[in-house]
Design a protein around this nucleic acid. Structure first.
Lengths: 153, 153
DNA sequence: TCCTAAGTGATACTTCGTATCAACACGAGG
DNA sequence: CCTCGTGTTGATACGAAGTATCACTTAGGA
């Protein structure tokens, strides 16, 4: 209805042997329809609107399930809020997060793994995990900013 | 009583023109006495114990104030919890966080700033800020682990 | 000393998430 | 068709961490 090629969480989850009860399906549908990064609150609202009979706990449980299946990724923002992103299939990601429009891009490659290892070694640490996200202004917002600046000038 | 050379938050705050009401002083004292990274809950408990008349809101307000003055640094952990660290005077830090003993080390230098700039540029992003923390096992815990392994062997 | 803005405590609230628990749904075996 | 048993669910209470409100108090300069 909205998106011509949905991520289709349901099919992907089914392929992994997840039991697809109706409420779970609802939640996944809503996530697909959203088609963008979302906060817990947004998802709760959207599900509430799509089907008020689905309970709060189920939304969180489904979210957790999807995270475990790596069909949804939890991104922890600077301000402490969590944002959830769909469409990933691999494990560890790093992000470029726009402070203006809240868009979240993935860093392709980046070679940070070896960088991490270097720093850890130098401190006698055994690195097991790390966080690395960059906050700033994305190309889009940067351009629209430039446009506005030149028109008012 | 505990630490021979306390950070002495109070004096440092005073030097910045902070008004030093009694409850504020209490909170700062407690932080100094703790002398280690602490969570909000720990601080609340410690203050409660030191002086039950100090209100919950004041603890948070003081904490916020100290963060603004950069006398305390807020470190956002992987699991979403915040931990506060004293003794800093500069702005942006990166950490090595031990998963075993929860100790938090600072990375000395590290050259990540230029790394960040490189990644951002490649994506057309203007980097304004970033997070970078490494989770793993610190040298201490690593050694005691080794000891235990060799004694049971 | 007096005055006032800053600071304070009690308390209610918010957000994000977890725990509990009785009820239910569904598929395997009869 | 019925009947388990396990997994799932909704309601609800709870929890942590932090914010908002508001009347009261106090620090500290004039």
């Amino acid at each position: 209805m909205s998106n011509p090629e949905k991520p289709d969480l349901i099919r992907r989850a089914a392929r992994r042997g997840v039991r697809l009860a109706t409420p779970r399906r609802q939640v996944m549908n809503v996530i697909d329809e959203l088609g963008r990064p979302f906060s817990a609150g947004e998802l709760l609202d959207a599900v509430e609107q799509a089907d008020p009979t689905v309970g709060r706990a189920t939304v969180f449980r489904t979210l957790q399930l999807l995270c475990e299946l790596a069909l949804v990724e939890r991104v922890r923002l600077e301000d402490g809020q969590d944002v959830y992103v769909t469409g990933h299939s691999h494990t560890h990601h790093h992000h470029l997060i726009c402070k203006r429009c809240d868009d979240i891009l993935e860093m392709s490659e980046c070679g940070i793994e070896q960088f991490v290892k270097g720093v850890a070694d130098r401190h006698g640490f055994v690195a097991e995990d790390h966080t690395f996200d960059i906050y700033g202004i994305c190309p889009n917002c940067r351009n629209s900013e430039k446009d506005r600046a030149s028109s008012t000038h």
